[in-house]
Design a protein around this nucleic acid. Sequence first.
DNA 1: CAGTGGTCTAGACCACAAA
DNA 2: TTGTGGTCTAGACCACTGC
Lengths: 252, 252
Amino acid sequence: MPTSENDSPPVYREIAEDVRTAIASGRLSDGDRVPGENDLMKQYGVARATARQALSVLINEGIVVAIRGSGVYVRAFRPLRRHGPRRLSRELWGAGRAIWQADSPDGSFETDSVEVAEVPAPAYVARALGLADEAAVVRRHRRYRLEDRPMQLATSYLPAEFAAGTAIAEPETGPGGIYARLAEQGRAPAHFTEEIRVRMPTPEEAAALHLNAGTPVLDVLRTALTEEHTAVEFNEMTLDGSAYVLQYDFDA
Amino acid sequence: MPTSENDSPPVYREIAEDVRTAIASGRLSDGDRVPGENDLMKQYGVARATARQALSVLINEGIVVAIRGSGVYVRAFRPLRRHGPRRLSRELWGAGRAIWQADSPDGSFETDSVEVAEVPAPAYVARALGLADEAAVVRRHRRYRLEDRPMQLATSYLPAEFAAGTAIAEPETGPGGIYARLAEQGRAPAHFTEEIRVRMPTPEEAAALHLNAGTPVLDVLRTALTEEHTAVEFNEMTLDGSAYVLQYDFDA
DNA sequence: CAGTGGTCTAGACCACAAA
DNA sequence: TTGTGGTCTAGACCACTGC
């Protein structure tokens, strides 16, 4: 008698599934209000904690957002396209535009909270740049915003050997950005390698990027190399996963 | 008197933060047991629901996993490297190896639950392949495993016009896989474009990939084009975000 | 069998949003 | 002011792990 009544999913999952299919089927769409805690309690005859647990599933999946005092709403996904190879082409920074402007449809990216410092290289940075551990590097940290929405955090590391004391170590790097400055030194980046990981954000990142619960971030680690394959920059970027689509084109 | 005691974070967040820093500082490392519900209740003098809420934060961040009847443990991250351009080079499938073998350090990938069918193309597939809406396509779905761990789901679409009735529409496509078959037809893939998105998995994907809570997935949408820029395959892949690092190399 | 995490109830007080 | 979501307590029963 005892245990043959097994494997029926818990109530809160079934409630979540009902709401999820209502969204997937289009019965509820972007920005629509979904049944709140009180609605679910009445409709399913469950306690408040159970209704909340059902909603928390959907919130952690990133498909709805809760707004205190107002309700729970279907979340939209309207990403920006970040084109790998094209955006780093010489034409862009050769013409006096900073590379990140290639992301933006209308060039309205803004940069924010810039911090420049000379520091000893962390181990993974030293490895990427081919330097000795703790070798001096210039670190540039900044945040990018588009129409007041924070989109990306970025931290660049360049060997202090050639970056210290130049415009690269200034908050404002001048037309074309650091790549143009490198080119003037005869260290123009010619090859790039990007490494992409996914994870959930730390609380600090969630705050800095204004992320909703259930939004993963993309880590993009880029190493820029000269024609002679000397590493000249290591850039560690953290992107709002709900804001970006990455694109890479290549040949067989 | 009333409200000047504001903005202190809720208890459950502070507990979560304590555990998080214990992990970040290295006091707790991969696979270590972290304080469980009962431990936290005693240490912080909170109710069980509060201790659980603190743990649920960390679980949804993907940094710990809960094992029923046992405890809560620090989660490891040991990803596979998936190298974009290199893995699709002609050498690989020209030599009779399927491309996904490039992912695997020792070639021990296995394929699973293969489904082949001829279906009308969904709108986004038709667009990617340059076909009319609802045009007939061959759909190939499969799951990839490495040492019994499911790593990736993939669904390929090829125009039925040249794929139907060939080995491409069979579960076993022969040496070199579908790309070798395409090459024999004079439709060898020469250009690729990959589009990458991140999101939290659906419950079905979480089950199929054996994902822990708090693990995002990577969607990789690849279009393969011939030398003449005719689209011959559209491949929709869903990767376990905790299992992969993607790498792309390109030139300025 | 004792201990763990998983689910669920029935309350409580709070901060915030919208009417 | 009413209703919403956010936090928290104090219980309960269950399924599973590991000794």
